[in-house]
Design a protein around this nucleic acid. Sequence first.
DNA 1: CGGTTACTTGACTAGCTTCAAGCCTTGTGG
DNA 2: CCACAAGGCTTGAAGCTAGTCAAGTAACCG
Lengths: 201, 201
Amino acid sequence: MASSKKSVIDQNILITYGGVAKRYEKGELIYQEGNIANFFYQVIEGKVRIFCANDEGKELTRYYVLAGQTFGEAPILTNKPYACTAQASASAVVIKIGIEKLLNLLHDFPEIANDLLFNFAQKLYASSCSTQILNGQTPEEKITRFLTHNKKGGENVIERVPFTRQQIADFTGLRVETVIRALLRMNEQGKVKIINRKVYF
Amino acid sequence: MASSKKSVIDQNILITYGGVAKRYEKGELIYQEGNIANFFYQVIEGKVRIFCANDEGKELTRYYVLAGQTFGEAPILTNKPYACTAQASASAVVIKIGIEKLLNLLHDFPEIANDLLFNFAQKLYASSCSTQILNGQTPEEKITRFLTHNKKGGENVIERVPFTRQQIADFTGLRVETVIRALLRMNEQGKVKIINRKVYF
DNA sequence: CGGTTACTTGACTAGCTTCAAGCCTTGTGG
DNA sequence: CCACAAGGCTTGAAGCTAGTCAAGTAACCG
């Protein structure tokens, strides 16, 4: 089995140092907000959604973790309870590894620690961006920021938005109806294009 | 000059590798949202406020950086424009160092890279917490989360809240009046104590 | 073709923001 | 020691708008 070049940490190395793979079915929770953090995770297959819930149970999507990417790092390294909940958003396989084992691994492979540093920097940056989204005053502003941050192409490229209105709502903290009405206004103003219910930005 | 034990990176090492110290007066901007990221910063003295502004100019405080702590790391390591603005919230001295010089430093001092990893983990965690604050539905919920995250003592300790109502507003994205009215309700409900205009939680 | 999911629309409401005005507290200078 | 300025805090009234609820319609998928 060739190691995946895209993984933050080579999965064979994770296994060698005591990592354990496990499959989670769609909707299953991997850990919950408030739980004591015991493991560091890396996705092998599928997709994991990280979200936090407020008192009324409304879930705000923080981000999705794809194959090769890690999650649950911050709480385990800072010895804090998880601040978010991790849920398999489709059938997923993840490797989990305890803190001591991870530290052994990082000790033996300093270049992985270095990779992790850059990886953390990316997450920090993404986190700043999502704060910007939530700081927007109007739904239009929040949605525009969200769409901008998630553009693959450059500024002048118009591309199909790969999110449902519900997903946009979950990322921006708005309600579906609000997202729909805001997108309609933005369509009239030419800020987005809606063709056959598909959104282009 | 003895090196400060509390600094993320020993300031003498920073200087040796080409870091430059500079003083900023109260209110002065160190870098602005959208600027190209050129430097990594560490505070020597004073306090720096990191905030992001929305289209209407309303500023959301992300966090304050105290002496010994770093800021501006994520954008420079990911080669992105700054997502926030950094402003001296009191007269402050900061050291700035370019990316190549920093990478040389990290290469020569792997243990500093390791410290930085834990430092990043703490920032990521703090970032998750501030997202939770913004995800709160009601002002009460936002304020409670903010106060909880900023408690020094344990759950059962009641202590003076070291923030003005305006500062709480800037952290939670609310308006002063809303914070005042929410705190009054929370006082009636026994969730906080207001004695002589000082808030205890 | 039938069931499920995604999207849409309208009416109503709650509550945060805004604007305006005034009060209290603290620190400073004469 | 007092007067005053400045910043922080408080209050009230009014309006806007996102949230909520309810009832649909359209697209997708097996």
